[in-house]
Amino acid sequence: MSVVDIRHAAVAYGGRVVLRDVSMRTESGQVTAILGANGSGKSTLVRTILGLVPLAGGEIDLFGTPQRRFREWARIGYVPQRLGAGSGVPATVGEVVASGRLARRGIFRPARAADKEAVRAALEDVALLDRINDPVATLSGGQQQRTLIARALAGRPDLLVLDEPTAGVDAVSQEAFAGVLSRFAARGGTILLVAHELGPIQPLIGTAVVVHDGRIAYEGAVPEPAGHHAEPGHDHVHPHAQPEQPAICVAPTDRMPPSNHPAATL
């Protein structure tokens, strides 16, 4: 069964075309990484799938239902790139993760024991249960990222959509992360993630999709990094399927410091 089915999608921001004629299909249980350089449109692609960016053309089906008529949002767990800017009003880890239950329980029904249990289970999964009553602002970047994953998992979704989950995340959290995703995949969950560099999650990825200049430039097995491109801080993707195209360089130029640089490990 197809979980996400995109046919000839086009997206434009204020007249500027960001995605053109994008078609891709994700089957149930598949783990797909969307790769690409900054500004390639890879983040826009997932945001379009989630309905955060309107389609200018083409169609998207979610779980076999056209996106416009799709209402079972509880089946999708979204993990944004980072926690919102934070306003100063404190919120505990538990409170943030509990937001993930709203799609399931609705906004009028108060939390029940099952909701609380799901929150605890999700935090246990990301190894943050001991921080449930701590303010999220006191957590490290990697722990905050894990909190966001727990929030998505708390809704018991069938599809996890992650936007650059490992960007700027310390090594411990990256490992924890790979563990969470592999357990989710082992339960039959479908994963769609945007990545800059794959790191420890690379073995999980079944399909890689490379977005270049608003189009899908490559779709298939994860390309092997070679030579100096395999060095830490580099994640170069060579679309061997289409050798006539220039190599697509995916280097973390906007991350200071690179996530697998020793300085980033807290």
Partner: peptide, 14 residues
């Protein structure tokens, strides 16, 4: 709380 904390996430939650 969900809407004020992370509006996009709230939208994706339906």
């Amino acid at each position: 709380f969900a809407v004020c904390n992370d509006e996009e996430y709230a939208r994706v939650s339906g």
